[in-house]
Design a protein around this nucleic acid. Structure first.
Lengths: 219, 219
DNA sequence: TTTTTTTTTTAGGTTTGTCTAAATTTTAAT
DNA sequence: ATTAAAATTTAGACAAACCTAAAAAAAAAA
């Protein structure tokens, strides 16, 4: 089934609000979408007719199994585009959300599959959130900072805590970005610094302050 | 200024129809957009208020300088996305139009600039049409087939005349695709076959039939 | 030059997604 | 348990983009 941009935005927002509280209220959704409660009620009726919601008047609502699947698909598209924008087009992390918000509504299934393949099936987006696969499954992610990851394990950078230009400068210098594969050779207890090795580049030392801000995942 | 998807589609279609005949008629535009003449008239009024058109009732219409700039920008987005879909996501040439039709309406300027940079500023899209630059300028393209290009010149594949699976198989085998840089080492008058060299691959011989179907450009 | 045909525009209606203001229901407070 | 406050829904409007049917203008034919 196919959904309008508006419908998709409602579905996605309901999904996000459900992560925090099981059922969602009209007001919170109106707030999330920067719209009016009356508009929300209108759309809820529509989504209910399309059988994506459990909804009882005045009682709140939640996505049913179908709605959840649809939501996960939208989230998948959003996060894949974010990953693309950061790793391929070299956008900075904080600039990609708005653009991905547009791109996510281009709903060709083949497009998204081929994009996923092109990006090498990344499990995590640049903000550290997991990317659902075709069936809506996402990896349960053991995301740790370089300060905590086991030594000698091959890991992949998933996100960075501090996005200041200064941090960016440092990361660029050491060839570290989202998706970079690296391993921690050793860690010095004296100051918490870590020696890391990025493929094809010389090993380098990161201070504890930096290490704590680089998050990685491993399988 | 920002335009709705509908407005953009009208602008783009007027631009395309103008390539053939200087002024455009209501009926031809309705036909191009698969819509009704009455709807076209409605939109023309709107585009006229937005000062993109020269339009006299019952007399036909055409884009003015501003409208033309807007149109070229949409064409630029469309063709860059087509190039992306074919060269990066490995879509076949005939499958990309519909998807690019959606992507072209995502109108972040920064997105398109970075995409252009990522793709290495391609001057020609996978159908052999020139890609306008930021200012709407496009290269006048000397597009020739491998059967006609001068020997020893560095050229880039811009499009392929025959898109059958058989042709694709052959091209893949020789590592030839849209954007591939190659040169023609020699050509045999006996049968019109050509020896070509693709970077990092062994030289190979293409029959005249194949050579005639591979179009290239050079600066 | 009339008449006929074709093209284009106007008039009025529909759908989607939004809004405001009023009514209703639920929740909280006295 | 009432009453007051907050949340939600209904009723009725509006803009964008489309539609059909009828009117008007231009082009073609007699």
């Amino acid at each position: 089934m196919n959904f309008s941009v508006s419908e998709e935005n409602y579905i996605k927002s309901i999904y996000h609000l459900q992560q925090q509280s099981d059922t969602v209220t009209t007001n919170s959704l109106a707030n999330e979408l920067q719209t009016r409660p009356a508009s929300v009620t209108d759309m809820l009726k529509k989504l209910q007719t399309k059988k994506l919601l459990e909804y009882e008047k005045y009682r709140g609502f939640r996505l049913n199994a179908t709605g959840n699947k649809v939501a996960l698909n939208i989230v998948r598209r959003h996060r894949l585009w974010e990953y693309f924008l950061v790793t391929k087009l070299r956008f900075e992390w904080d600039k990609v959300h708005a653009i991905a918000e547009d791109l996510e509504h281009v709903s060709s299934i083949e497009l998204i599959q081929k994009l996923d393949n092109f990006l090498n099936y990344p499990p995590i987006d640049p903000h550290g959130d997991p990317i659902p696969d075709m069936n809506g499954k996402m990896a349960v992610i053991k995301q740790v900072s370089i300060a905590d990851v086991p030594l000698k394990k091959n890991v992949t950078v998933s996100s960075v805590g501090n996005q200041s230009p200064e941090m960016l400068e440092l990361l660029n210098h050491y060839h570290i970005g989202i998706g970079t594969a690296l391993k921690v050779n050793m860690r010095f207890d004296f100051d918490g610094s870590a020696e890391i090795k990025v493929l094809k580049h010389a090993a380098c030392i990161l201070s504890e302050q930096v290490a704590k801000n680089i998050f990685v995942y491993h399988d």
